[in-house]
Nucleic acid binder design. Structure first.
Lengths: 335, 335
DNA sequence: TCATCAGAGTGGAACGTTCCAATTTGAGCG
DNA sequence: CGCTCAAATTGGAACGTTCCACTCTGATGA
């Protein structure tokens, strides 16, 4: 009982027009009289016609499909970013193909090749750690429009937070609270993000005439906890953390060592993931609105696709400081 | 400088075989001599041939693409599930089309229609709250293979946790710790999930000859906090929470009221999201391994696609109890 | 009356695969 | 040597759109 699929041809016959007329009508082309268009639309619904994008794709070369390479979707920050991308692409009439690279450059590579075959109209990449710098060249050679998100290549379309401005904000806030021994926690893995965040902190310290100090650790709650647990009263009184996960870990480590974040040591995170507000104590952090970044990324890529010859856009979004309790500002005010 | 795209035809000419031979070779068909296959493969790499799936899709009707409708991807539980789905589909040679319905039945409907046009070989659905029950019928009428994930329709392919068994485990654990006044927190929105979780708790209480009590709240940290804050010493000594988010909220509320989770009131969550282990205090919860559910869901759907006439599979995965500190078991042991 | 033109609709080739039936090749055997 | 059969290869028609060049119709104006 395999039923015959309805094609434009059938709609055309039903409406009593030529195939190409029906096709134009279904695309709502203004070349046709409104009357004709309506007749075709009605015939289509009467027959239960379903547009077949794969056929259109083949002929027109446009798939209305974008590949999204997420470096780690189980990270809430990237999950929200993904939601923003998907929403914006959907609004523009595009479908999102998802690939979670789980920070594997090999998997990333595989998925890119798959996207190329699919084929997608463009890709959005959050480069996995260890991505070879040659990747940008290669994508260009493939003729595949792309934009980087959050983490960037040296050039090319991009959307992401202003990392430098973020840690500057954090550092200046801690300085204003009277801290002098402020350390930067994190950034063991080099990337455009960690460099930017380190620089924002280091420059703010330099401007204040203070020495910068980096406590290396990878972006991992457990590792950050270990480092923080080892800090003594002689160490820094405040930590600018690479991101919220690191800050969460640092808070855990401090508590294990019997020191209370926000009272004994000030803590500032970066990202403002959903959990930051609900942590104990609530985390002071830099908000970068992942959802907004995702939308910006979609915009930037679609622009690249629409105007391949124009200069690639770079959207660097300004972060804001969200003051909660882990920096001690509330207690200080109360006192 | 628009370069000519390489097609199978070109590869065939380069390798000195017929078009259809080259096509077979590229699909690694065993009908061909190994020697021929190698020659064609070499010609393909020499020319930089890229397979065009959209053409294949059109002719064969198989897109090797699956639509994934996530009810809320910013929820860490569903994010991990998504990662599991994507990984399993990728392994099976499928690409994942993502749509985040953000719990909107309207958006869900729109995305389903888009997937149908795309076209995808099947869809994986985590029905948004408020999904009309007729949806299952409609999908069947469309001839679109589907499987539900976590939340289910009455029948049809499905993969999800054994909710009843989960809350039974949680309740029995609290009973074993000596609690008698145990309440269920959450489940204000009716769904297959909340019914199952409530029943598991209620039956365990009934078996112990105790009265069941439901503290209604929606799945929202703030709302759960509010309810928990209002509990007095006369109230329940232990809470079986609808999920981890609710448990986090309950913990916050209790702390605000000056009561410590794990010491003054026992708390058990459900899901074991990544944050559960790092919460303060670390959350005792029911682990359902979202990643595993995602993989199971992919399997179930692919089976449905491969054997449309077979009985749809239903995978109900057994949960496990993860004992941490919020239930007070550790303190009890230490004492 | 007839050329001109714009608007509305048409016909058929293309897109790059897969599928199927048909053909060629070569080994084995009497 | 000719016959048979399986294995290897081939040719060409689909698949359902879009694209482009073309035709038809009726209005306009000289």
């Amino acid at each position: 009982m395999k039923m015959h699929r309805i094609r434009i041809k059938d709609v055309a016959r039903e409406a009593g027009v030529a195939l190409s007329t029906a096709a134009l009508a279904l695309r709502d082309d203004s070349k046709l009289r409104e009357e004709t268009r309506r007749a075709v639309r009605e015939a289509a619904t009467r027959l239960g016609y379903v547009y077949d994008r794969s056929a259109a794709m083949m002929r027109s070369g446009k798939s209305h499909t974008i590949g999204l390479l997420v470096c780690e979707i189980t990270n809430p920050f990237y999950a929200e970013l993904t939601a923003g991308v998907e929403e914006a692409l959907d609004e523009a009439g595009y479908v999102t193909m998802l690939a979670n690279t789980a920070e594997s450059a090999v998997r990333q590579r595989r998925m890119l090749e798959r996207f190329r075959e699919q084929p997608v109209d463009g890709v959005l990449i959050m480069p996995a750690t260890g991505t070879p710098t040659a990747l940008a060249e290669e994508l260009k050679a493939w003729g595949l429009p792309y934009a980087t998100v959050v983490r960037s290549f040296r050039r090319g379309a991009h959307a992401g937070p202003d990392n430098r401005a973020g840690t500057r904000l954090a550092t200046e806030h801690l300085l204003a609270l009277g801290h002098r021994r402020i350390a930067f926690l994190g950034g063991a893995l080099k990337s455009s993000v960690s460099t930017g965040r380190w620089e924002g902190y280091a420059r703010a310290m330099a401007r204040a005439g203070l020495a910068a100090e980096q406590l290396l650790c990878r972006t991992d709650i457990g590792e950050a906890a270990l480092v923080a647990e080892g800090l003594t009263a002689k160490g820094p009184t405040a930590l600018v953390c690479f991101n919220d996960s690191v800050a969460f870990g640092a808070g855990m480590g401090l508590m294990r060592a019997g020191r209370m974040p926000g009272r004994d040591v000030a803590l500032v995170g970066f990202d403002d993931v959903r959990e930051a507000a609900h942590w104990y104590p609530p985390l002071t952090t830099i908000r970068v609105a992942p959802h907004v970044i995702g939308q910006a990324a979609a915009r930037v890529l679609l622009h690249r696709i629409a105007e391949p010859d124009a200069e690639p856009l770079r959207e660097v979004l300004p972060p804001t400081l969200v003051i909660r309790e882990s920096c001690g500002a509330q207690q200080r005010r109360a006192a």
